Simulated assay, not measured.
Amino acid sequence: MLNLRTSLAGTLGSFLLLSAAEAATLSAGIRNFDYQYDYAGAGFIGGGNGGLLPFAFFNPALGTLTGVRFTLDSRHTATITVSATNLSPQDNLAVQGGYSGDVFMDLLDPNLVYGTLYSEVLSLGAGCDTGAPGSCSASDSFNLVLANVNDIDFTYFALFEGTGSYSVSMNVGGQLFAEQVFPGSGPATGSGSGRWFGTLSVVYEYDPAATAIPVPATPALVALGLGALARLRYRR
């Protein structure tokens, strides 16, 4: 009789588990991006590059949206070189330069006050000192992993429901400068290059609209199971 009770209780537990909706996940897309840029000249040099990555809206017919996650997995590399040539015979002539760049992702549609999903400011600096007439050059570089996981606040979930797709704007840019510490002693130039590449993915988490056994049936199952146990005890 103990085995029968255990079996009945286990069966009842299985019914109760089936009555609860199990969370599911759905990919809105995985997008690759690769932005490359070069800069050269003297003085301040501005530049930028970017693009739009499309992602599918969540279909509300599938169930109740419970999570929206953006995952960035990328790398940003950049270099800078500053140099001066044909310098005048002035002692301790120095050349300095720098690069200040940034990368950022903006959600364009839906038009959220959430705005920027991710941003990063990066910089390089280089300088050289001749100490005597002649030329000099110096360089600097970085090779960085840029990773970010952004879980959207639940108050915005409804804005990700619909048909079609929305876009995320990927942008990279910066400024380079190269100059001599002592103006008029000769020209200074700067040059460099950069690359931001990787993947951006969006995943939805949701509770399915349909379940194996409707949740309202749960109380009836409990009553049925308890009644069966009572009858077994009475017969014993």
Rank of each mutant, 00 (worst) to 15 (best):
R5W: 05
L8V: 10
G13E: 07
G13I: 02
L17Y: 03
L17C: 03
A20M: 00
A28C: 00
R31T: 12
N32C: 00
F33P: 01
Y39K: 07
A40E: 15
G41A: 10
G41C: 12
F44G: 07
I45H: 00
N49E: 14
N49L: 10
F57Y: 15
N59E: 15
A61G: 11
G67Q: 13
R69C: 04
R69T: 15
D73M: 04
T77H: 13
A78N: 13
A78I: 02
A78W: 08
A78V: 01
T79N: 14
T81M: 10
Q90G: 07
L93T: 09
Q96V: 13
G98D: 11
Y99V: 13
S100H: 12
F104P: 00
D106C: 00
N111E: 15
L112T: 14
L112F: 09
Y114C: 05
G115T: 14
E120D: 11
L122D: 00
L124T: 09
S137F: 14
A138S: 15
F142K: 00
F142P: 09
L144S: 10
L144N: 06
V145Q: 12
N150A: 12
D153G: 12
F154T: 10
Y156R: 10
F157E: 01
F157S: 02
L159S: 15
E161P: 06
E161N: 14
E161Y: 07
G164E: 13
G164I: 06
Y166M: 11
S169C: 06
M170L: 14
V172G: 10
G174E: 14
Q180I: 07
G186A: 11
G186Y: 12
G186T: 10
G186E: 11
G186F: 08
A188E: 03
S191M: 06
G194Y: 11
R195T: 14
F197K: 08
L200R: 02
S201D: 10
V202A: 02
Y206G: 09
P208V: 03
P208N: 09
A210W: 13
A212P: 01
A212S: 11
I213V: 15
P214C: 03
P214F: 05
V222Y: 04
A223T: 09
L224N: 01
L224G: 09
L224E: 05
A228Q: 05
A228T: 08
L229K: 00
A230P: 08
R233F: 05
R233D: 08
R235F: 12
